[in-house]
Simulated assay, not measured.
Amino acid sequence: MVDDVDVLTDENGRDKQGVEAAVRKIIHIDMDAFYASVEQRDNPELRGKPVAVGGSAARGVVAAASYEARAFGVHSALASVTAKRRCPDLIFVKPRFDVYRAVSQQIRSIFAEHTDLIEPLSLDEAYLDVTTNKHNIAIATEIAALIRARIKEVTGLNASAGVSYCKFLAKMASDLNKPNGQAVITPKHGPAFVEALAVKKFHGVGPATAAKMERLGILTGSDLKACSLPFLQENFGKAGAWYHRIARAIDDRPVQPDRPRKSIGAEDTFDTDVVEFEPAKAELSPLATKVWQYCEARDFSGKTVTLKIKYADFKIITRSRTLVAPVRSEGQLLELAVSLLAGTFPTPKGIRLLGITLSSLVTEPNQQRQLSFGL
């Protein structure tokens, strides 16, 4: 584990060991078990108990789990039935995304007290570039500690932080002292940290890629570093260049405050499998409403509508249609989703989940949508 210390530099930008100091100071803030912690905060009866947000004892998947539940091996994306089997005393709570979004806004306001270079990754985590900051604080770990304390004061929730000279290592550092802790990976420690890290723990390396790397004999960052760029590009395509750089602890990606959203979606898992078209069609209406309300609130629309279907055996298929012009109304969104659904019937098996996603997003002012629809 890396100690919670910052880089001390001299006037020539070198640390005490003579290593060139990084110019940037990046903080990754990650809320601890965010959804579950909000529920435990708001309901004292849940405190100290294993809590799963989302799903139910019989259906669905876990969206988030408290640390008490994690001790039993319960985690996000785990099937609810499996979660209940692992933790018989698990308490399922329906998600309250309106509350989570409101708390997230409080947290982002705290970030903005220190820097405008904020790149949210989700409701509960973000990158901050504090190389230059509003209070002229030289030590990045001091800023991280101030932010975490302020989050606790305002929301009553715990946050963890990682500090480093690049986004990749800041992200990895935020996991080192969870929950309610922070760590720093300095330029001196960065290369050795990556070399010792299992590639399956690299942020951005999913199970399929990790399995492929294992088949190629790549188990650690050191193994990855030993691979040539042509070899990585041959086996991993465009991602090969990224793996080549990150194996050397090189990540020049900037913190992007205006990182564009790529899609907006909603999905629902049913209490019982749906096998007939009309009941399935009826389930699409509230999903279209959720997606469109989000779009209207933020002046978004999109050109690509995707239908997601998860069957009773957990097989997932998707069907998409891309338009020349953006979707103009909730009714049009629903109509497109229904037409995609119709193409999958008669269904070979029961449907346990449906989802609608709108992508290829564009800014579409509400008045313009209304005028276009009216014409």
Rank of each mutant, 00 (worst) to 15 (best):
Val7Ala: 07
Leu8Ser: 11
Asp10Glu: 12
Asp10Ile: 14
Arg14Asp: 02
Gln17Tyr: 14
Gln17Phe: 12
Ile26Pro: 05
His28Asn: 05
Ile29Ser: 02
Ala33Met: 14
Ala33Asn: 10
Ala33Trp: 03
Phe34Ile: 11
Tyr35Asn: 06
Val38Asn: 09
Arg41Phe: 07
Leu46Thr: 01
Lys49Asn: 07
Ser56Gly: 09
Gly60Thr: 03
Ala63Met: 13
Ala64Glu: 09
Tyr67Cys: 05
Val74Phe: 00
Lys84Arg: 15
Pro88Tyr: 09
Asp89Lys: 10
Phe97Val: 11
Phe97Gln: 13
Asp98Ala: 15
Tyr100Leu: 05
Ala102Gln: 13
Arg108Trp: 02
Ile110Leu: 08
Glu113Cys: 10
Thr115Arg: 05
Asp116Ile: 00
Leu117Gly: 08
Glu125Met: 00
Leu128Ser: 00
His135Trp: 08
Ala140Cys: 13
Ala145Phe: 03
Arg150Val: 02
Lys152Ser: 13
Glu153Tyr: 08
Glu153Gly: 04
Val154Asp: 06
Val154Thr: 09
Thr155Ala: 11
Leu157Ser: 11
Leu157Arg: 11
Ser160Tyr: 09
Gly162His: 13
Ser164Asp: 03
Tyr165Asn: 07
Phe168Met: 12
Ala170Arg: 10
Lys178Ser: 14
Asn180Ser: 14
Ala183Ser: 15
Ala183Tyr: 13
Val184His: 06
Pro191Arg: 14
Pro191Tyr: 11
Phe202Met: 06
Val205His: 02
Pro207Glu: 14
Pro207Ser: 11
Lys212Ser: 10
Glu214Tyr: 03
Glu214Gly: 03
Leu216Ala: 09
Lys225Trp: 11
Ser228Leu: 12
Phe236Gly: 04
Ile246Gly: 02
Pro254Ile: 04
Val255Arg: 06
Val255Pro: 11
Gln256Ala: 09
Asp258Phe: 10
Arg259Asp: 03
Ile264Gln: 07
Ala266Tyr: 08
Phe277Ser: 04
Glu278His: 03
Glu278Phe: 05
Pro279Lys: 02
Ser285Lys: 15
Thr289Lys: 15
Lys290Leu: 04
Lys290Asp: 08
Glu296Pro: 09
Glu296Thr: 15
Phe300Ile: 09
Lys303Phe: 01
Thr304Ser: 09
Thr306Trp: 01
Phe314Asp: 01
Ile316Asn: 07
Thr322Leu: 00
Leu323Trp: 00
Leu333His: 12
Leu334His: 14
Glu335Thr: 12
Ser339Met: 06
Leu341Ser: 05
Lys349Ala: 12
Ile356Thr: 08
Ile356Gln: 13
Ile356Glu: 03
Thr357Lys: 14
Leu358Val: 07
Val362Gly: 04
Val362Ile: 13
Gln367Gly: 03
Gln368Asn: 01
Arg369Trp: 03
Gln370Met: 10
Ser372Trp: 00
Phe373Asn: 03
